[in-house]
Simulated assay, not measured.
Amino acid sequence: MTARWPRPPSPRRPDTCEILAGAEIAGLARHGAEPFADVALVGRRLYVAVMHALVRGFVEMGCVRRDARVRVITGSIGRMRQDLRAWLCEASGLAGGRP
């Protein structure tokens, strides 16, 4: 949750190039005031395993509800894009429309 990525270019320079997964999700969930109830994990097996671990951390942070629906989308890149689009349309209430 607090690992810095990408790493700073040099240990002697100021660290101004970090993206913290926990900070990003906390901002999107308004620091736990509006935790996510639906989550989609999109990627191949290793990425999905890492994302499951992140989701567990986000639950502990209060940014994802414990009873959140987690949908795993995997397969070929084209299939993943189609399935992600369908998930986004479903979540926004659009039946086959544009999200």
Rank of each mutant, 00 (worst) to 15 (best):
R71V: 12
A53I: 11
V55A: 03
G43N: 05
F36N: 01
E60N: 02
V50E: 14
A68G: 03
M61C: 06
R65G: 00
V55N: 05
G57V: 04
A26K: 08
R56E: 13
P35Q: 05
G57T: 07
R79Y: 05
A49K: 15
D15I: 02
G32L: 11
T16D: 15
A26F: 04
D38R: 15
R13W: 14
F36I: 03
R30V: 10
A40L: 07
V39S: 01
R79S: 08
M51E: 10
P6R: 06
P35V: 06
D15C: 08
H52A: 03
A53S: 14
I25H: 04
T74P: 03
P11R: 10
R44L: 13
M51C: 14
T74C: 00
F36K: 03
V59E: 02
E24R: 10
C17W: 15
R30F: 11
V64P: 02
I73F: 08
R13M: 15
R65S: 08
E60V: 09
E18L: 08
G57M: 01
R71T: 15
C17M: 00
R56P: 00
A29H: 01
M51V: 02
V50Q: 11
V48D: 05
E60R: 04
A68H: 03
E24V: 15
P14G: 09
G27P: 01
P9D: 11
V39F: 00
A68S: 05
H52C: 04
A3P: 03
V59W: 06
I73R: 02
E34L: 07
G22M: 05
P9L: 11
A68E: 05
G43W: 04
D38W: 06
M80Y: 13
L54Y: 11
E34V: 08
R44Q: 15
D38G: 06
G75T: 02
I19F: 12
A29Q: 07
M51Y: 13
R45C: 04
R79D: 11
A49Q: 14
F36T: 01
R30S: 14
L46S: 12
T16W: 14
V70W: 00
L41E: 00
G75P: 02
E60Q: 10
R45L: 13
A37K: 10
M61R: 15
G32H: 06
I25N: 08
D67S: 07
A23V: 10
I25W: 02
F58H: 07
M61F: 15
H31E: 15
D67F: 01
V59L: 06
L20P: 05
M80P: 06
